[in-house]
Design a protein around this nucleic acid. Sequence first.
DNA 1: GGTGTTTTTGCAAGTTTGTTTCGCGGAGCT
DNA 2: AGCTCCGCGAAACAAACTTGCAAAAACACC
Lengths: 158, 158
Amino acid sequence: MSPLFMPQLDAFDRKILDILQRDNTTPQRTIGEAVNLSAPAVQRRIKRMTEEGVIRANVAIVDPAAVGQAITIFVEVEVISETAEQIEQAKREFAAAPQIQQCYYVTGEADFVLVIVVPSMAEYEALTRRLFFGNNNVKRFRTFVAMDRIKVGLGVPT
Amino acid sequence: MSPLFMPQLDAFDRKILDILQRDNTTPQRTIGEAVNLSAPAVQRRIKRMTEEGVIRANVAIVDPAAVGQAITIFVEVEVISETAEQIEQAKREFAAAPQIQQCYYVTGEADFVLVIVVPSMAEYEALTRRLFFGNNNVKRFRTFVAMDRIKVGLGVPT
DNA sequence: GGTGTTTTTGCAAGTTTGTTTCGCGGAGCT
DNA sequence: AGCTCCGCGAAACAAACTTGCAAAAACACC
């Protein structure tokens, strides 16, 4: 599924992706009109890009506040030992926590950057106790609480 | 559209959201079978949650590498003056940049946290020149380059 | 520059999916 | 009880997706 060789995308594909990244419920007929292609042609391109892994998923975006998960938090995590085994272990732990929405392994002054969504600070406090204080490979972590979500998405410019 | 009063969601709604956050192309009939509801009932609930703003959008997730945007970068930005007008100005600027995928206004040792997607470090360098060095209200910024995207999504636990 | 091959398109039919309508039944209220 | 209000399911309906096929580009190779 992962694109080992970079699939070739033409201008049609990019326009289609652009539309689907905004609203993937757009009818193929409408997309076709927008890009000057027939609906079946659009459908075939979408199918191909899905098979190639260009389109990774089709998902609904849910307002966290509406489901009682009102608090978004950023955390930078610095580890003590950066051996391959320790790093893999950390990756597995972070990936397994449902509150962790995003997790990146980074260069710079920290080793991991996390985006966490929780219903309350109490829950975040409990999470830090489990994930950070309870992990003796975590040297330190810095917390940033989001006051405003100015722009949230996973769209990439095409 | 924004839920000023919290709409209450029952167990059916949450199960439906859970499915749609994974794959919003799942047929309503299939969802109905999974949650023990008829397809029209599922359809009405989805429509209601969309109108209430619980479901904010329906989007395709595109692999950044597949469209030549292979580099993900985190940036913490610290500003000099935190007057309302200055902050609003910064928010507008960050929101307008297509390379900025996510932007949060945060408490803590920084004021903004950005998630940026670019095709190359050269492009990132150009972006920093424009957004940070070119903005005399930016005191300092710290860059974290993602080596591995361990977990990426916008799903919230229900 | 022509020719055969491959690829991709558009159209039309067939199938699946989404949507509306309508009647039914339960929860809450007087 | 009798009433209304919601939300449900079954079926009819409308819209969208999918597939088969023939024609038109695009391409490689003489």
